[in-house]
Design a protein around this nucleic acid. Structure first.
Length: 291
DNA sequence: AGCCAGGTCTGCG
DNA sequence: CGCAGACATGGC
């Protein structure tokens, strides 16, 4: 491990009764840039390379500050209270028990926007690969003793990419959406901040107007990037879980329809309440156990 | 080979 | 509106 500037390494202690499972939170599919190596979780947050590891109630960090780690992990939120708020039945109860210490991270709006455009109709490992490629090809170099890292690309960098380099990122048909959405943000750098300050439905409408952002991506962006904890994103897994445990699937339904997803989304939000997004993440995390 | 993946877009009726 | 197909790519 490289020598660090004083003040950029240290550890924090979890408050009594405020659990956090670092590895689970970083690897459950809400963030795509973390890798475990030699017992440390390594990732790029903003323009910093972070190294994190946990031993019990102690989280050690390098490359950033205690304050930023606490904010990123949202340690200010009362997790047991959130769990209790959504713990309405045996199914969600089991899901909560399946992923104790799972916390929703406070991630960057722009990075989440692009990440969930990449996330359409593909697998988590490949999303990670696409994000890594985009960063390596279009992000800023961050030299470090542990290797060369890359920050997530700016809107401008993705708005005017070298075509051949973009092809190397293997985004498939998503490349056009990424570039067009990046262009929109580059032309109006305050757009995402503006949307984040709007009431939920208006923020959602704004996101839906971006190329490559449909209902599911919009909800994930609202939850993971805008930290709107009452949205209930519906993907294939949540659809299956909800049909299996909560809502009878309509008699004639063959293909997944947007109408049906809307029904699930509305139900989830009303049933689980103001922390429905957390409930969704518990269910998603426990998906293999629930199907 | 064929099906599926943290879906979205387009073109119909 | 609501529905069917197309769509790039890679893992199983």
């Amino acid at each position: 491990m490289a020598a660090q500037i004083p003040g950029t390494m240290g550890f924090i202690r979890l408050r009594e009764g405020q659990p956090c499972d670092l590895g689970l939170s970083l690897s459950c599919g809400q963030a795509f840039r973390w890798e475990e190596r030699d017992g440390w979780w390594e990732g790029v947050v903003g323009r910093e390379v972070w190294h994190l590891r946990q031993e019990g109630d102690r989280i050690e960090y390098r490359g950033t500050t205690a304050r930023r780690v606490r904010d990123y992990l949202a340690l200010d939120l009362d997790l047991p209270a959130i769990q209790a708020a959504v713990d309405r039945d045996p199914v969600i109860h089991g899901a909560i028990a399946f992923c104790p210490g799972l916390r929703l991270l406070r991630q960057d709006r722009w990075e989440i926007l692009i990440s969930f455009i990449c996330a359409t109709n593909t697998h988590i490992p490949r999303i990670r690969q696409m994000i890594a490629s985009l960063s390596r090809c279009f992000g800023g170099r961050i030299p470090s003793a542990t290797g060369t890292w890359y920050s997530f690309p700016s809107p401008g960098a993705l708005a005017a990419p070298c075509r051949e380099t973009l092809d190397e990122c293997r985004l498939g048909y998503r490349d056009r959406y990424i570039q067009e959405t990046a262009t929109r943000i580059a032309e109006d750098p305050r757009l995402l901040r503006y949307l984040a300050a709007l009431p939920l439905e208006e923020a959602r409408e704004g996101l839906l107007s971006l190329p490559g952002v449909g209902p599911k991506a919009a909800d994930c962006i609202l939850l993971f990037g805008f930290h709107r904890y009452d949205v209930f994103p519906v993907d294939v897994w949540i659809r299956r879980i909800m049909h299996r445990h909560y809502l009878a699937s309509p008699p004639g339904m063959k293909m997944p329809s947007e109408k049906e997803d809307r029904r699930i989304r509305t139900f989830g939000r009303e049933y689980f309440g103001e922390w429905a997004g957390y409930a969704q993440e518990f269910l998603f995390c426990a998906r293999t156990d629930l199907l």
